[in-house]
Computed example of a mutant assay.
Amino acid sequence: MDNSAPASGQNDTTATTSRALTHEPPPFLSRITRLSRIYTAKSLAFPSAWLREWKEYFYPPSTRPDIVKSYDIFFPSSYDLTSPSTLPTLFTVHGSAAAPFVLGTPRDDDEFNRTFADKYHVLVIALNYSKAPASVFPAPVHDVEALLVDALGDESLPIDRTSPRGVDDDKKKGRVGILGFGAGGNLAMAVTLLEGVKREECCPGVVVSWGGWLDLAAGGGEEGAWRWGYVPYGVDLRDGLVSPFYARGGEGFRGFIAGEGDGLAGENEGLARRLVGKGEVSRREINSEGGVKKRLEKEDERFWFEEGRVKWVLVPGVGAGFEHREVREEMGWEEEVVKDAEEKTELVMEELGGWLRRVWGVNG
């Protein structure tokens, strides 16, 4: 694999707040081990993906997208396709709990996308990106950029391109947001920093990281293989496009959601706190109490706060990927834990949906 560094595309809006940390080659045997792990993950994922495609061909699921272009489009079930009315629009970028930047497809989020579109009367558009190690940084970021710009310019889509009331920033026209899960949270945060997106007449004024991997400079251990496959040697791991945790600049509203047992919760909390001036925090690994029956803890700012243009939600008693049925099934969670995760997913979606509607100035 050619892991030499391309230009990062760094500019003033993606300059880092810390000194550079160059991605250096690991020992030879470590490289072999990481490459083996990446291709083992790919080979194990292929049969299940193949079987799912055939099953969906004969038995189309109710959560499938309404239209498939170079992106997947979900209209609210109550929306009249002949109507001239427009819709607030949420773009989603998938991740992969098993192998970030290496595996995953937009279809992994079909259940979330369909539910969110129907429940909150929102147009949802799912974006894809090329995967490591065949495609490395910054290609996936620009893949998301290209699809995002293409969809925003598609006049056949009923995207609400009017500015929310009280928003006078000409660069943030439109009731539009982008949300990413895991690696997708990284890409969603990064793409909004690109000048090509910021120059668009209509572009996301809201970006949400749901368990996003925002700090690749701190990623080690099990994450080492996925980071090694995605980031070429010589690239600054604290470049804002690689690790949005370190980016300065960036306008609009930003939301952060994570499960209490997600190893990435700490960096999401850390960035949320820094953005509202709560100071740097020790980005501890936040451990789950495992299936403890709690609702969202809004009385404790460790779990929830909403200040200015920033929202933070830490979901108690659940781990990474709790919002995805496939993850719950693959992890073999007990029935009680699965039910708890499903209930909390609904609560978080309600919290997110309500926040977006307030930000967008949408009534009802």
Rank of each mutant, 00 (worst) to 15 (best):
residue 57 Y to H: 08
residue 46 F to W: 09
residue 62 S to G: 08
residue 31 R to K: 15
residue 25 P to R: 07
residue 58 F to T: 01
residue 61 P to F: 07
residue 65 P to W: 06
residue 48 S to L: 14
residue 23 H to K: 11
residue 27 P to W: 09
residue 37 R to G: 11
residue 55 K to G: 00
residue 35 L to Q: 06
residue 51 L to I: 12
residue 64 R to F: 03
residue 28 F to Y: 13
residue 57 Y to N: 02
residue 55 K to W: 09
residue 28 F to L: 15
residue 50 W to H: 00
residue 40 T to W: 14
residue 60 P to D: 08
residue 53 E to Q: 14
residue 32 I to F: 14
residue 29 L to F: 15
residue 58 F to K: 02
residue 62 S to P: 02
residue 49 A to M: 12
residue 30 S to G: 03
residue 44 L to M: 04
residue 61 P to V: 09
residue 59 Y to I: 04
residue 27 P to S: 11
residue 63 T to A: 15
residue 63 T to N: 13
residue 30 S to K: 11
residue 42 K to Q: 15
residue 48 S to W: 14
residue 49 A to I: 06
residue 42 K to V: 06
residue 33 T to F: 06
residue 26 P to R: 05
residue 32 I to L: 15
residue 66 D to A: 02
residue 37 R to T: 11
residue 30 S to L: 03
residue 52 R to I: 06
residue 66 D to G: 00
residue 31 R to F: 03
residue 63 T to G: 05
residue 56 E to S: 07
residue 26 P to M: 08
residue 55 K to A: 07
residue 49 A to G: 10
residue 47 P to R: 11
residue 22 T to Q: 10
residue 26 P to S: 09
residue 33 T to V: 05
residue 66 D to N: 10
residue 26 P to W: 04
residue 31 R to N: 02
residue 38 I to S: 03
residue 27 P to I: 12
residue 51 L to H: 04
residue 57 Y to M: 05
residue 51 L to K: 12
residue 36 S to C: 10
residue 53 E to V: 04
residue 65 P to T: 02
residue 32 I to K: 14
residue 57 Y to P: 01
residue 52 R to H: 06
residue 33 T to D: 01
residue 54 W to D: 00
residue 51 L to D: 00
residue 25 P to L: 06
residue 35 L to S: 09
residue 38 I to N: 03
residue 57 Y to V: 02
residue 50 W to V: 12
residue 24 E to P: 01
residue 55 K to C: 00
residue 53 E to L: 13
residue 45 A to S: 15
residue 25 P to N: 03
residue 49 A to D: 13
residue 32 I to W: 12
residue 22 T to M: 11
residue 43 S to E: 08
residue 28 F to D: 05
residue 36 S to K: 13
residue 33 T to I: 08
residue 52 R to A: 14
residue 65 P to I: 01
residue 45 A to H: 13
residue 50 W to E: 00
residue 65 P to D: 03
residue 29 L to W: 15
residue 42 K to A: 08
residue 31 R to T: 09
residue 43 S to V: 11
residue 25 P to K: 02
residue 22 T to N: 01
residue 22 T to E: 10
residue 40 T to Y: 14
residue 58 F to A: 01
residue 24 E to M: 05
residue 47 P to E: 12
residue 58 F to S: 02
residue 42 K to W: 05
residue 27 P to Q: 05
residue 28 F to Q: 09
residue 37 R to Y: 10
residue 56 E to G: 01
residue 22 T to W: 10
residue 22 T to P: 00
residue 28 F to R: 04
residue 38 I to M: 09
residue 28 F to E: 04
residue 57 Y to S: 08
residue 23 H to M: 13
residue 37 R to I: 11
residue 43 S to Q: 10
residue 31 R to A: 07
residue 66 D to S: 07
residue 64 R to V: 04
residue 47 P to H: 10
residue 55 K to M: 01
residue 32 I to C: 13
residue 45 A to G: 11
residue 47 P to C: 10
residue 45 A to E: 15
residue 36 S to W: 12
residue 23 H to D: 11
residue 39 Y to E: 12
residue 39 Y to G: 00
